Simulated scan of single mutants.
Amino acid sequence: MTTYAVLSKGLEKRFGDVHALRGLDLAVPEGTVCGLLGPNGAGKTTAVRLLTTLIRPDGGRAEVAGHDVAREPAAVRRAIGVTGQATSVDTDLTGRENLRLFARLHRLGGAVARARADALLDRFALGDAADRPARTYSGGMRRRLDLAASLLTRPRVLFLDEPTTGLDPASRTAIWDVVRELTLGGTTVLLTTQYLEEADQLADDIVLIDRGRATVRGTPAALKAEIGAHAEVVVADDAALPAAAMVLGRLTGSRTTLDTARRAAGAAAEPDLTLPRLVRELDAAGVPVVDATLRQPTLDEVFLRLTATTDAEEAVA
Score class of each variant (00 low, 15 high):
L182C: 12
A74G: 12
S88L: 02
L158Y: 05
A199Y: 01
Q194H: 11
A174K: 13
G140V: 13
T192L: 09
F303C: 02
A315R: 08
A149N: 01
A79V: 02
P169L: 02
G286K: 14
L121F: 06
T293F: 05
R280A: 15
E270N: 15
L105F: 11
T260G: 15
G253V: 09
Y137I: 13
Q201S: 07
D283Q: 15
H19R: 12
L108M: 10
M246I: 14
V302R: 09
A79L: 09
L306D: 04
A240R: 14
D146E: 13
V28Q: 02
L158T: 10
G139Y: 12
A265R: 14
S171H: 11
R123T: 12
L11I: 08
R180D: 05
R22L: 08
E313K: 07
L7G: 03
L248K: 07
A134V: 00
G228Y: 09
V64C: 07
A74Y: 00
A129P: 00
T298D: 05
V76M: 03
R77E: 07
R213F: 05
R135Q: 15
G95S: 05
A221N: 04
I80G: 13
A214K: 06
P276Q: 04
R123S: 05
F303Y: 13
V289E: 05
T87K: 11
T87C: 14
L126A: 04
M1D: 14
L147W: 02
E270Q: 15
R22S: 06
A174S: 13
G59I: 06
G266V: 03
G23L: 10
L258E: 02
A149Y: 12
A245G: 13
T219A: 10
A285H: 09
R142T: 14
V287N: 02
T53Y: 03
V69F: 02
